[in-house]
Design a protein around this nucleic acid. Structure first.
Lengths: 162, 162
DNA sequence: TTTAAATGACACTTTAATGTAGCACTTAAG
DNA sequence: CTTAAGTGCTACATTAAAGTGTCATTTAAA
């Protein structure tokens, strides 16, 4: 619900969850604390997704698909944008570390010939999460595995006739 | 500036523009009116972009590149998200018409063999604007023409080695 | 230079959301 | 059954932003 409107009021969040506004304040000290808990959960899920995909060692094609599948699943569980929380130092540090890990993987994928060289700086790095985010929301009927098939195929080969 | 935070206060908007908060209220009756004017400008630019690209008649490869280039340019001039304004009926109607026009073009591109058939429903339609939006912001040093080259190549052939 | 329009600055009311307090009610554990 | 924990509800204070009014000052056109 915070996906649609990150600035949603505590009242509307509580209403959507079917509980009283006061109950939210009993579980979380403040709005900030509530959001921090959500972003914490997402961030941990991201770290798990990276580790599970073994971005450093697994064959790049395998690692890419598995990472994409994991992130699609966590995007659907925690559909919030970490960009809203970069004010928090701890969040930013962990998020930056995750980004570096994926960037290093993409560099390895380029070295090993999965990705083309000579693309604009940061293009693959920016495109990957956007496409994953998009399919997570726009294709809810696809399972994470099916959606990952589409994402990997789209990223590697595009939408054109082959 | 509204791109980063659509919920920015009038005070912060005015400050960033170097004018007094009161001056904003002299030009626009309300915050709603200010946003409506911005979205109106973007919407008109979108309609112009579609018409200029001649999505219905021009060769699909030519029309695609030109449309993408036009939208990248307008994304940089009016970097706001129309999704925030879908409450306004007139905006929604015009936006839907533009979306239908692009969808029809993508169908033609598929018929004529530029795009692959058998993709998930709505995938190309959703992916195109996202990729265009992304490059508009993430690759500011590329000219609209260069950026369109990258977008079209990425969309048609992907990032993989050929 | 004079004048009219636009702007900046200050003060105010209103509104919406955050966060807090107290009390009645439900529910599950003993 | 009794009790304790959690929840719903109403009310209240606080804060931030929207929106309005007024007046002095600046700016540009005559």
């Amino acid at each position: 619900m915070l996906a649609a409107d990150p600035g949603a009021s505590i009242a509307s969040i509580a209403a959507e969850a079917g509980v009283d506004r006061r109950t939210v304040y009993r579980r979380f000290d403040s709005r900030e604390a509530l959001l921090a808990a959500i972003y914490e959960a997402r961030l941990t899920a991201i770290e798990d997704a990276i580790e599970d995909a073994r971005l450093r060692e697994a064959p790049v094609a395998v690692a890419l698909h598995r990472y994409v599948e994991n992130v699609i699943a966590l995007n659907r569980t925690w559909p919030v944008d970490l960009a809203d929380m970069l004010a928090d130092d701890s969040v930013r540090v962990r998020r930056d570390a995750a980004v570096r890990e994926v960037d290093a993987f993409l560099a390895r994928a380029t070295d090993e010939g999965l990705l083309r060289a000579g693309l604009p700086e940061g293009w693959a790095s920016a495109l990957l999460p956007q496409v994953v985010h998009l399919i997570s929301r726009q294709q809810p009927e696809l399972s994470p595995g099916q959606a990952a098939d589409v994402v990997v195929d789209t990223l590697l080969h595009g939408l054109g006739t082959r």
